[in-house]
Amino acid sequence: MHGIAFDVAHLLAGCLVLVSFLMLYQDRLYSLLNTYALHATVLFLSVAWQAYIQNAPDLYVTAGIALVFKAIIIPVALHRMIVKLGIHREIETVVGTGPTMLAGMGLVGLSLVVMLHAAAGANLMAREDLAFALAVILLGLLIMVTRRNAVSQVVGFMSLENGLILAAAGAKGMPLVVEMSVAFSILIAFIVIGIFLFRIRERFDTVDLQALDRFRGERQ
């Protein structure tokens, strides 16, 4: 069971971290969305592989949801929204690409050190899986922090959520939570897309969050 099963799981989880890095430096909304679709596809492969090696059929459902909703429906919907809103211009990032990439590498190093050390007692596969998952989560956080645009913050959040699902899928026999987290990620995506963006669009001429920042409540 170990050999190839472990290698493929390791490879796919590593790819997910790599795609997270790709997302870090996408400075156009379109390419960010495409990279996110790739991210979700890799997650689909990774979860499907976990379902196969753990012999856990319910994980296939999670994998299917990752493919259908996250890799196809949500990116397509966001694409349309971007066109409608007319904001397919460049993303302004708060920090430059260089420092962001360096920070990303630091975070990946940190998560590897922390998890490999902390989970030393757990089995090899679970340990590596957790380390990669934490890296994806922290990179998702970094994407959210470095972007000002509402759409790209949502994308960052969804990639963070992918990291959580990777971790949950790697935890052998984890009940309920896989389905729940998927349901919640969809719910969140819908809430964000449906309500926030439309409302923001309705009230503001831009979905750039910096425009929101001007209305600090404390200012008189």
């Binding site: 957790l130 934490l134 959040f157 963070l160 939570v177 964000v192 969050l209």
Partner: peptide
């Protein structure tokens, strides 16, 4: 809207950390 957005983003990050912690307890 700004307050709700800020709340949503920070609460989601918090809730994501909490889920990761929950998964670790399970592990």
């Amino acid at each position: 809207l700004e307050a709700a957005w800020k709340y949503f983003i920070l609460a989601s990050v918090g809730i994501a950390f909490a889920l990761f912690g929950t998964i670790l307890v399970y592990m």
